[in-house]
Amino acid sequence: MNLHALKIFHTIAEKGGVTRAAEELRISQPAVTAQIRNLEKELGIQLLVSKGRGILLTDAGLMLASHAKRLFALERELDEVVREYKAGFSGILRIVATYLPANLLLPEWLALFKQEHPSVEVVLTTANSKEAVEGLLQYDAEVAVYGGGWEEQPGIEWEELLEDELWFIVPKNHPYAGKEITLSEMMRVPFILREEGSSTRERLFSLCRALNVNPPKVGLQFNGVNEMVRAVIAGYGAIFISSLAVRDNVERGEVGRVMVKGASLLNPIAVCIRQQETLSPAAEAFLSLVREQSKGRV
Rank of each mutant, 00 (worst) to 15 (best):
A144P: 00
G149N: 07
L204I: 06
R209S: 15
N173M: 10
R203D: 14
S184L: 12
N173Y: 08
S199V: 11
G149H: 12
G147I: 09
S198T: 02
A210Y: 12
V218N: 06
E157N: 08
M187I: 04
R194I: 09
L161V: 08
R230K: 14
G147P: 01
A210P: 00
S199K: 10
G149K: 10
K179M: 09
I233V: 15
P215N: 06
K179E: 13
L220R: 11
A144C: 13
E142T: 09
E185K: 07
K172G: 02
K179A: 07
V229K: 11
V229I: 15
V189E: 12
R194D: 10
V213T: 11
K172M: 07
V143D: 05
V229E: 01
L162M: 15
E202T: 14
V170D: 03
L204T: 06
L193G: 07
E227R: 14
F191C: 06
V170T: 02
N223G: 15
L204H: 03
T182Y: 01
W167F: 15
V213D: 09
E185P: 02
N214T: 13
L193M: 15
V218W: 00
E159Q: 14
E185L: 03
E165T: 10
G178I: 02
P154G: 07
I192G: 08
S198M: 04
L162H: 04
R209F: 13
F168M: 01
H174D: 11
E142K: 01
S198G: 13
R201Y: 12
K179H: 07
A210Q: 11
P171H: 00
V232G: 08
T182Q: 03
G178P: 01
E163M: 11
N214I: 02
E159H: 15
Q153V: 15
Y176N: 04
E157P: 01
P171L: 01
E195N: 13
T200H: 12
P175L: 04
P175W: 05
P154W: 11
R194Y: 05
E202W: 08
Q221N: 10
G147H: 09
T200N: 06
A144I: 02
N223V: 08
L211V: 04
G148L: 11
T200C: 11
F191M: 14
L161N: 07
E165I: 05
F191W: 05
A144W: 08
I192W: 01
E157M: 07
E151C: 08
L220V: 05
S199P: 12
L220W: 10
V225H: 10
E163F: 01
L162A: 14
P190D: 03
G197M: 05
N214Y: 07
F168P: 00
I169G: 00
